[in-house]
């Protein structure tokens, strides 16, 4: 019998183990009760098994989120590995829900699990998609808002990867600013 080469039967390991979370906006429950872990994975094959199995963001109800975070990091500002960090935030128009939301989210997931930001991938904590009536949002969270080089690498490569028009500016906000903002807008520490 011809022995199968490992390539044929060994799953492809990812650099990190990841956890996918789902947030459903149930007003009768507390915020943390509404946040549920769906599943964890650490191979390419297991990622696809999960991804192919769940709803696309455009099919979720308003107020729902998906969060993909490195295992051990909770998808909230307060987590020790998030609290000193921030996020690249992309806000989408209402029309983009049908044309762009799902493919941007998939591309974001592939960037994370594929470690697509070279050395800067170390700084990535996770990514969140928020489905909202006024416009959906996708963000990539990093762990230290002072690591400008890594943050700029991530922002520039992410913008290129989604081939966003140059005039579409992405802003990076620290979680500290976002959580303590007085007005409706949070100032950007960086932008690309």
């Amino acid at each position: 019998p011809v022995a199968a080469s490992p390539e044929q039967y060994i799953k492809h390991p990812l650099q990190n183990r990841w956890a996918l979370w789902y947030f459903k906006n149930d007003k009768s429950k507390s915020w943390t009760e509404n946040l549920r872990l769906i599943s964890k994975f650490d191979t390419v094959e297991d990622f696809w098994a999960l991804y192919n199995h769940i709803q696309q963001p455009s099919k979720l109800g308003f107020g729902c989120d998906y969060c993909l975070f490195k295992d051990g990091i909770k998808p909230m500002w307060e987590d020790d590995r998030n609290k000193l960090g921030g996020r690249w935030l992309m806000t989408l128009s209402k029309q983009q829900r049908h044309n762009d939301l799902d493919r941007y989210w998939m591309e974001t997931l592939l960037c994370l699990i594929g470690e697509s930001f070279d050395e800067a991938s170390e700084d990535v904590c996770g990514a969140v998609v928020n489905v909202r009536p006024k416009g959906d949002k996708i963000s990539i969270w990093t762990g230290n808002c002072q690591n400008k080089d890594a943050i700029m690498t991530i922002g520039q490569q992410y913008k290129e990867r989604l081939n966003l028009p140059i005039k579409n500016i992405l802003g990076y906000q620290s979680h500290d600013d976002t959580s303590s903002k007085s007005g409706s807008t949070t100032k950007n520490m960086y932008s690309v």
């Binding site: 039967y9 799953k11 492809h12 390991p13 990812l14 650099q15 390419v44 094959e45 696809w48 098994a49 991804y51 192919n52 591309e107 592939l110 699990i113 594929g114 470690e115 697509s116 991938s121 990867r161």
Partner: peptide, 20 residues
Amino acid sequence: EKKRYDREFLLRFQFISVSM
């Protein structure tokens, strides 16, 4: 060394069912 995968490589596995 780091396990990095580009999108083309990852996409090849989306619909390959793992026959374990």
